[in-house]
């Protein structure tokens, strides 16, 4: 896998390489270079700080879409034991844009669901770039109901640009499939933990996005419309997506402010793609922390609170009669 670097990542990577090379050539103990190394390292820390504390919404969108970003399949390998993928919606076909299965985390059985974009070109085509068809949503619901029946918590990773807009998807009821999922997930009688690990693309994300706890990784985003499409509507120019990304207030911080998510998950320095293992460790700790208390909440209270949480979302003005 040859890494791909975003424009604003490049100076950081170059500096990191410089430090690495100097280190290899001369070693840590060389007095001549020791000073230089310290200097470069300070420079690197400052550069990182400057870059990542001032990311524009569009740069965050780019990080969320980073082709090297870990996907559900990566997290499954790094976090869970005894994973068994379960295929198919039992009606039409298996949709590889959403992976579903069963597994264990620290010995505890869980149901796993996640968008899958695929890494190499061939995989990406197989997984339809993570854009699900109705059968993907129906498969997810089938497996979630399996979890409900046998009282296993449901863990969901979301990273999709959108539900697929195509002829077959419409013929097989994309809208109906998403609607049914949203409704059914509102009242599923087991804990549901949602983590947005990249793109939270509109209805395509919400179709597997209703849960007791919804978390978003620091550089992931959640939006009602892709910035490109928003720009096309506003200015008839999709290339103005960076401006649209700003207008849409889609960053993790804003989502928390709007109270549509319950928390932000920290990412390794520079984003999850810079350190898969660390990203997975943070996710694993997060999952365990939430499962721990969610499992203790009586089912009826859990469902009541879940519905209540979404019922309170939205911002409007109250007016006098």
């Amino acid at each position: 896998m040859s890494p791909i670097w975003l424009e604003f990542e490049r100076p950081i990577i170059e500096l990191e390489r410089k430090i690495e090379e100097l280190h290899i050539i001369t070693g840590e103990d060389n007095l001549q270079t020791k000073e230089k190394l310290t200097e470069l390292k300070t420079e690197l820390t400052k550069l990182k700080e400057d870059t990542y504390s001032n990311l524009t919404p569009w740069q965050r969108v780019q990080l969320a879409r980073h082709p090297d970003r870990p996907y559900t399949s990566d997290y499954i390998k790094l976090i869970f034991d005894d994973f068994l993928e379960l295929h198919g919606d039992r009606h039409f076909r298996d949709d590889p844009a959403i992976i579903t299965g069963i597994g264990k985390i620290n010995g505890k059985s869980v149901v796993l669901i996640g968008s899958e974009k695929g890494r190499k070109t061939k995989d990406r085509i197989y997984h339809n770039f993570g854009m699900a068809h109705p059968e993907g949503y129906r498969k997810a619901l089938r497996v979630m109901k399996l979890g409900e029946k046998f009282n296993k918590p449901i863990i969901i990773f979301i990273d999709t640009s959108a539900a697929y807009p195509g002829i077959g998807a419409e013929e097989r009821g994309q809208a109906q499939a998403i609607a049914e999922n949203i409704k059914a997930m509102s009242t599923l009688k087991v804990p549901i933990l949602i983590m947005i690990t990249g793109e939270g693309g509109s209805g395509g994300a919400l179709g597997i996005g209703v849960g007791d706890v919804v978390l978003v990784q620091e550089y992931a985003f959640y939006s009602v419309i892709p910035p490109e499409a928003c720009a096309a509507i506003l200015w008839k120019d999709a290339s103005r997506a960076p401006e649209a990304a700003k207008s849409l207030k889609l960053t993790s911080k804003k989502l928390l402010e709007f109270k549509v998510i319950d928390g932000i998950i920290e990412e390794p320095d520079g984003g999850t793609h810079r350190d898969f293992k660390k990203a997975a460790t943070i996710l694993k700790e997060t999952i365990l922390k939430h499962l721990n208390y969610l499992s203790d909440i009586p089912t009826n209270v859990l469902v009541e609170k879940r519905i209540e949480k979404f019922a309170n979302m939205g911002i409007y003005k109250k007016i006098k009669s």
Binding site: K183, S223, V224, I225, L248, V260, I307, I315
Partner: peptide, 26 residues
Amino acid sequence: GARMQEGILSLMQMAKTSGALARLGE
């Protein structure tokens, strides 16, 4: 569909209304 000008808050109305319908159904 959802109102773009209210961003993610609009999207969440899908969950809000569907949750209410789940209760109505029960």
